[in-house]
């Protein structure tokens, strides 16, 4: 080969570059596709493990809870109704978002979480007390952070007014800065935080965001240096508790509880 085409010719450089790129690209693709199912199973296990951690931390409320005592339900988000035609065990939220038939575009002015689309349905967990009254509502929430999508469990009390916990189970934020959303000290701030004021206006957020009163009752301290992550967390909560998120579902729960 080296006799036919001179070693430092442009043709040779292009050829070698293309060949190396092709082989390397093929290798990466094959590995990524082949390992995808195992990685997905890992992430799913992590999701459940984090939920169990949340329940452990909240075990002082009501009876001892395990993941099996949770009631998994599918909610149709626009109407806020339970939709029992979908089996929670087979519902795949990430796939639902990708398909145009099972998701809707979020109007730009409402897209506080930067998600662009959301699934028509969501899987929620309910924790009931002995009298079949709802004690805790566990909602999956997600939003755009600094350089990754933040995914978390948002736990509300049965009255839907108070946040009991916010637990991130998947993100790719900067270690030591944005990634501190995982730290117990920061997470603890979400415990028993009112989400709405007396007039029913959604007030929850992260302090130091422009346009908010510095009313400590509804806000947590931000993490310094992680401005974009904090904006993500703030927008994520306001989106998922807002009208395009779970607002209708929570409204219905409130009415049913009366």
């Amino acid at each position: 080969m080296s006799e036919v085409i001179p070693r430092d010719s442009t043709a040779r450089a292009l050829g070698v570059a293309l060949l190396v790129a092709f082989i390397c690209g093929l290798l990466v693709s094959v590995v990524a596709v082949e390992l995808r199912p195992i990685q997905k199973a890992n992430i799913e296990a992590e999701r459940i493990a984090q939920l169990e951690l949340v329940l452990d931390a909240l075990s002082d409320i009501g009876r001892v809870q395990s993941i099996d005592s949770l009631e998994a339900r599918i909610v149709e988000l626009t109407s806020g109704q339970f939709d029992d035609s979908i089996d929670p065990a087979t519902f795949d939220a990430e796939r639902a978002v990708r398909r145009s038939t099972s998701s809707v575009a979020i109007p730009a002015d409402l897209d506080l979480a930067g998600l662009k689309r959301r699934a028509k349905h969501a899987q929620v967990y309910l924790v009931n007390d002995a009298n079949r009254r709802i004690e805790l509502i566990i909602l999956p929430v997600s939003g755009r952070g600094y350089q990754s999508t933040l995914r978390a469990w948002l736990v509300l009390d049965g009255g839907t007014q108070t946040v009991r916990a916010l637990k991130f189970y998947q993100h790719g934020e900067t270690p030591g800065v944005g990634a501190r959303i995982e730290e117990p000290e920061w997470e603890a701030q979400w415990r028993d935080l009112s989400a709405y004021d007396d007039a029913g206006v959604l007030r929850i957020g992260v302090r130091s965001q422009a346009g908010y009163s510095d009313d400590a009752e509804f806000q947590v301290d931000g993490i310094s240096g992680a401005t974009r992550t904090m904006q993500g967390v703030d927008g994520m909560l306001r989106f998922w508790l807002g009208e395009f998120g779970f607002a209708n579902f929570l409204q219905r729960i409130r009415e049913e509880q009366l």
Binding site: D8, R12, V16, A17, V20, V28, Q39, N42
Partner: peptide, 29 residues
């Protein structure tokens, strides 16, 4: 012996990056 002198660094980096991505994927699994 096949790597042209002019693009040797980028070829090396491509090979290294490929290996690192593969290893990273395996670790995540």
């Amino acid at each position: 012996k096949f790597i042209p002198h002019t693009i040797r660094i980028i070829v090396q980096i491509t090979i290294i990056a490929t290996l690192v991505i593969v290893v990273d994927q395996v670790l995540q699994a």
